[in-house]
Write a protein that binds this DNA or RNA. Sequence first.
RNA 1: GCGGGCGUGAUCUAGCGGUUAGGAUUUGAGCCUUCCAAGCUCACUGCCCGGGUUCGAAUCCCGGCGCCCGCACCA
Length: 541
Amino acid sequence: MDVYSQIISLAKRRGIFHPSYEIYGGEAGFYDYGPLGALLRHNVQNLWRNFYVLGEQCLEISTPVIAPYEVLKASGHVDKFLDVVVTCRKCRSAFKAEELSEEQLQALECPSCRGPLEKGRMNLMFETEIGAVNRREAFLRPETAQGIFVNFPLLYQYARRKLPFGVVQVGRGFRNEVSPRQGLYRLREFSMAEAEIFFDPEDKTHPRFGEVAGDQVNVIPAGGEELRSSVGRLMEEGIINNQALAYYLALTQRFLLAAGIDPAKLRFRQHQREEMAHYARDCWDAEIHTALGWIECVGIADRTAYDLTAHMQATGADMTAFRAYGEPVKEKRRRIVPDMAKLGPAFKDRAKDIVEQLERMEPPPEESALQVTLEGERVMLDPEFFEVVEEEVTVTGKNVIPHVIEPSYGIDRIIYSILEHNYVEAEKEGERYVSLRLPPSIAPVTAGVFPLVSKDGLPQVALDLDRHLRERGIMTFYDEAGSIGRRYARMDEIGTPFCVTVDHTTLEDDTVTVRFRDTTEQVRVPRHRLAAWIDENIRPQ
RNA sequence: GCGGGCGUGAUCUAGCGGUUAGGAUUUGAGCCUUCCAAGCUCACUGCCCGGGUUCGAAUCCCGGCGCCCGCACCA
């Protein structure tokens, strides 16, 4: 059996993940996480939070999965988040538009039977409705990002009106894929962790870039060959467009390596212009090599001001940030000042309309008549009704729509990759022996706790110890069934890094053995020190 | 969606028109057991769903659902 099948089989057998609704025949594109999988995913997401919320000081929020029509209309998803599907009316073959050549599309002729082709589009969003009586159209969100963008004004305020700042959300996204496949790779409901970092559009530098500049990464620039270099160098050579993108490339690599991804099987590929999502100007994917080939697990996109501008236009909400100049600047300004004493008597109730129009106009270079529109009629307004004044104002800064750098992580794909990269098969007395060499911090169970034999009072001591560890926040698994070797094997297969055994020596000197998953080595640790010892050994070295 | 392959206990599989669907692993109970899947006894769990052909279907045919491979795409 190939690695992929081994993992799928192991995942199902040991409660990591399996297809949803199986007793009803299954539903493609949906997967359940079992007891161990839920723990594993929790740990992976927590590790991610360690990077983004603790490390980067991003603000974590949580917004609804259901979004009203207008939100996703404004964001462009209603119109652009489509797959163009071409079907033949005669032989009923269906193609994605990208598969066909220009000529075939022009001719609208089926490549297999020459029948007439029909162009159709399919939106990838799940539709739903809000309300019982007045049903309003809505969608399940295709990304968590929009929930962050629509909250920008409040978040900007919360971040004390300073750029850059980041906001993250960990949650579910939904895409009604045409053809879900390959287990956790393409799901219709999936877990994502997204960060939206708001930068001044003219300053995409990162204050801590220096810390990562030396990190070596594998990259494939658009239209170029794969190469390995430091992110600092890639920046200097212009291969990566700005520091912010480069920084998050490096940070993403650090996160993935901490999660147990094999560095040799990780690369960053820049999107070609035509494969970019509708909202992105530049995008780098972190791709991980697995039995399924290179799979995209993280997208790091420069969304520019696209989303904030869209929501600002749709709602009129202020999505700008204030950029203070170093020194206040004195600016000369010319302004039209209406003369109300004359406008009022002359135009009566239409005077207000004229004033509003004048406010939006460019001041004329000299005293001359201005054209206004009154009830659909063009009227020339003599210079006597207004004055053009020149004034000096002090400008302390200006309002800009921030640019967004978005690292977006597909948690399920990453979890599959972690399992595959840490799956180790060995021979043990002619039998296949499986270990998952997960980093201790993400392993679903941290410590197995066993009595060496189930007599002589050892189980009671071990049970007490198990309880003690759990009270200290350590996920344990107590087991007294079968030989000690079998119990170690059970723990190795689910990636438990440490096994603690209570033996007869424990009764004499109050120490226990701790056995390491990857080396099977053992050390004796005083029982009262054990929780602290485990905490210290969980940390990545 | 298209083409090809495949659906048998939790997992891996035998069975290819004819008794009560067999094995291995796992799991549970018990015996045994002083550190790496030891042994023994017992036990639980299965032919993806629906229709058809047939005296008789896990097996042949049709449809659905699911999985895998290829074509292709946003995490």
